[in-house]
Design a protein around this nucleic acid. Structure first.
Length: 526
RNA sequence: GCCCCCAUCGUCUAGUGGCCUAGGACGCUGGCCUUUCACGCCAGUAACACGGGUUCGAAUCCCGUUGGGGGUGCCA
């Protein structure tokens, strides 16, 4: 029987899935799927502080959302403590490990006072310390020779054993460290390829040393993926950068867009086609051609991918997937606050991000949707989105922007954008005449098709232009009157959806408002 | 300090000694389309870090320099 290809994704449950971890998971998965192998999921929770079901869910759930599945697991290291203890016992018996009672603080002081470089220098090797509370177990690293990591991406990486210090394999509280658990698990689980971030490359010789001491035979093949970095080319970090995968979901990114984009960070298909179906990516994926240099996580390009994927959705799909963004019980401004937080944390990197988001939010009215009305609203919203899908799709980058374009159809009240009002209504020619005439003709019309509505509105503009000798725009004032602003979807279909009554009501409201401001202007001039 | 990794347009990449006057994509700029905003289409911008080798020939191989990053925990 030949050894099967088997990879593993082994995150530490730290509260959420990091985009870097998601990329690691994805590459493990792509590699396994490409060569007909398996991927196992293992939760690295040897550190007691990391044990909590909520933390585990925070990893598993986003993985599922991305569509990354696994063939076995999740396996928990916290369930395998006996195995680790047995391995530690074997290492002590064989002389590969020994007890040490120095605390981290003492090690630091010793290094300082002895003038040696920082770190532990084998002080307890021959002190014959007995096991006991607070006593750690250290691995006795060889004093000579070389440990070589066979890496599919970087070739052979050599470490001089003399530079490897006697590291801890069991903590003072009795729990194993991840180097030890890694070696034991990868062996016991028959992992053939270890694919992980480059930040772990330096710890690999430790695992290899343990592996050898435990007489496990031929070690796994490694592949250390290039780090994902921010615009300053530093490793993506929780503090500085937007790394929680869930936030991308909440901002309206599509999992397929994220997966497609992530796959291209460090790897690229030879034919240069970037946006393509997952099946093709799986087929073309080749770990050995992964580029070793670090990769900037470019939200701009992600946005482009997302926009492209949104445009490829059919109308029903769009409505379905935008649904959570349209009907969430909370005020939609909550969504914006998420945005602005992000702007604060990364203002140096992505001022560009906002460029695509037409700031089209002045029409927003607080929606205190309770659940019965919520359902009705949801159905109405779904219908609106489905009907206008093609027009919406060209204008959004994320699903969370969908409401911005249709809110005015769904809300009962209207809010005017000050600038738009100023520009179109106050500075336009014959605005009151246009709106009055349009209203009159609409009230006499069946209002049954976008074409009819268009010909009414445009017709009024043409006629007034002829009659007055100046160019009179009619679409713009109608748009402001009805939607509240001067930027929006092609008007005619949405108008039909809004309905004759509401359209007329909004036209008269605008006319009234215009007359009021005119008279007050006159008064103030007198 | 020590150890390790990396280096093609601003960014993600194609490129594995001749097909390279270096291709694609994002971004940016300009144009076309358009009575809003977009989408779409067309065009333009822009790179092999530097210095030595090896070779008839180097973005591709070797060495060095510089620059960047990661690690240096009883985190993973």
């Amino acid at each position: 029987m030949t050894n099967p290809i088997r990879t593993r994704f082994a995150p530490a449950p730290t509260g959420f899935l990091h985009v870097g971890s998601a990329r690691t998971a994805l590459f493990n998965w792509l590699f396994a799927r490409n060569c007909g192998g398996e991927m196992w999921l293992r939760i690295e929770d040897t550190n007691a502080a990391l044990k909590a079901q909520a933390y585990v869910d925070a990893i598993i759930e986003p993985l599922r959302w991305l569509g990354i599945d696994w063939d076995s697991g999740p396996h928990f290291q916290s369930d395998r403590l006996q195995e680790y203890e047995a391995a530690i016992e074997r290492l002590i018996t064989s002389g590969h490990a020994y007890y040490c009672n120095l605390t981290a603080e003492e090690v630091k002081q010793k290094a300082e006072s002895s003038g040696l470089p920082p770190g532990y220098h084998g002080w307890s090797r021959n002190r014959s310390i007995e096991d006991g509370p607070g006593v750690v177990v250290r691995f006795r690293s060889p004093d000579s020779g070389t440990t070589t990591v066979n890496d599919l991406i970087r070739g052979q990486v050599h470490f001089k054993n003399e530079t490897l210090e006697d590291f801890v394999i069991r903590r003072g509280n009795g729990s194993p460290t991840f180097h030890l658990a890694n070696a034991v698990d990868d062996h016991d689980m028959g992992i053939s390829h270890v694919i992980r971030g480059e930040d772990l490359l330096n710890t690999t010789p430790r695992v290899l040393l343990i592996w050898e001491a435990l007489k496990y035979g031929k070690p796994a093949t490694y592949a250390h993926l290039p780090l994902l970095v921010n615009s300053k080319r530093q490793k993506l970090s929780k503090r500085r950068d937007d790394v929680a995968l869930n936030e991308y979901r909440e901002r309206g990114f599509l999992p397929e867009a994220l997966v497609n984009y992530l796959a291209l960070l460090g790897w690229g298909p030879t034919d240069g086609v970037e946006i393509r179906p997952l099946e093709e990516i799986i087929r073309l994926f080749d770990l050995t051609t992964v580029k070793p240099g670090s990769a900037f996580f470019d939200r701009n390009k992600l946005a482009h991918f997302n926009a492209t994927y949104i445009r490829s959705l059919n109308p029903e799909e769009l409505a379905e997937r935008a649904e959570p963004f349209l009907t969430s019980g909370k005020d939609r401004t909550t969504d914006d606050s998420g945005d602005s937080r992000q702007k604060n944390t990364t203002q140096n990197t992505d001022t560009q991000d906002r460029r695509r988001n037409t700031d089209y939010r002045n029409t927003r009215v607080a929606s205190n949707s309770t659940s019965p009305t919520c359902k009705v609203k949801s159905a109405a919203a779904g219908n609106v989105v489905t009907t206008l899908a093609a027009d919406i799709q060209q204008r959004v980058t994320t699903l969370s922007e969908v409401p911005n374009w249709v809110q005015w159809i769904l809300e009962d009240t209207i809010t005017y954008d000050g600038k738009a009002w100023q520009k179109v209504m106050l500075k336009g020619h014959l605005v009151v005449e246009v709106l009055t005439e349009v209203a009159t003709r609409i009230s006499e019309d069946s209002f049954t098709s976008p074409e009819r509505i268009e010909s009414i509105v445009m017709g009024v503009g043409d006629e007034l232009t002829k009659r007055s000798g100046v160019r009179v725009l009619s679409q713009a004032p109608v748009r402001v009157a009805v939607t509240g602003t001067n930027v929006g979807l092609p008007l005619w279909k949405p108008l039909e959806l809004l309905g004759k009554d509401k359209t007329l009501a909004r036209l008269s409201l605008a006319i009234e408002r215009l007359r009021n401001s005119n008279t007050s202007n006159k008064k103030s001039r007198e």
